[in-house]
Amino acid sequence: MLELRNISKQLGEFSLHAINLQIKEGEYFVVLGMSGAGKSVLLEMIAGLVHPTSGQVFINGRDITNDKIQDREVGIVFQDFAVFPHMNVLQNIAYPLINIGYSTSEAHLLAKGYAENMSIGHLLQRKTTTLSGGELQRVALARTLALKPRFLLLDEPLASIDLQLKDELRGLLRKINRSGITIVHVTHDYEEAISLATRIAVVHSGKVVQVGSAEDVFNAPKSQFIAHFTGVKNFYKATFVEENSSLAEGKVVIKHYTSVQEKEGYLMLRSEDVIVSSSHNPSSALNNFEGELLDFFPCIQGIELMIDVGIKIRAHITHASVKSLDLKVGKKVWVSFKASAVKYVPHS
């Protein structure tokens, strides 16, 4: 287990306060927060590249706060990959192996194997300055994994990757995690967190505001920040039923568009995209449900409704609409939303 106890760090304008985290062996742990929240520094402190102002880092109960960088079983991949520009792909991957005592020829032989695992076996002799973001990412991963770290720290690993390559890399990261390496991944992208995480820690204003599964964090956000951060009020565990439909929370079939064919995932819907009416009006929206109004509460710009249609759906409407529809708790209403308003994030 990797444990951070009361880690604090003063960093010029902002700071991290008393960070406590426990990351279990084999977990895919995502630290989610806005850019500039100090997430990268958190990783650098685990790797020993930055020293905390106070607090300790433990690996399996052993205090490693003052251990040398080289003695930790922690590998880090930076956001800009930090691939050495004066070495080719093979030399980059062989570099750590030579550092731990392999001869150059042994290191090159092993490095070829790691490159094959990362599907970059054909790039071995290429200069790294000619590689794409995705290729550089794989070089950096192969190089770090060559040391067989127990913990792999990833700083915004998908931030500089082309959209079409992101799915592929997510798959690769899951594969690495399944091979037994614990991953700590920091990101500002909540979809990335939902898609990959076993557990998520949300960092805001230098503090950990919530730790839990994707459902915990998005269904029951403990702070206004998380709700605002994603803008998503409706969040459901989903199972793939057939093309373009999934079963939300095992109860209601929701229509959506997706290019991904994975069995498990999450559905997300903004409360602003939900239309509420007192009777069923035929429209182009594919999702139409009758439900009971459970509750309504004021929010910044209007009223938020909680409607039970088998699953609980939050809808955001104006004060005027509440009056014109004569809404009361217990009243039957119709809820509709377009399939294109629903976002599906696969999670296997």
Binding site: E44, A47, L49, I69, Q70, V74, G75, I76, F78, D80, A82, F84, P85, Y95, P96, N99, I100, A140, R143, T144, L147
Partner: peptide, 15 residues
Amino acid sequence: VPVRLEKAALNLKAS
């Protein structure tokens, strides 16, 4: 020379 590259090398067990 980006400090990042030196940090990466340290993490890759270089003295």
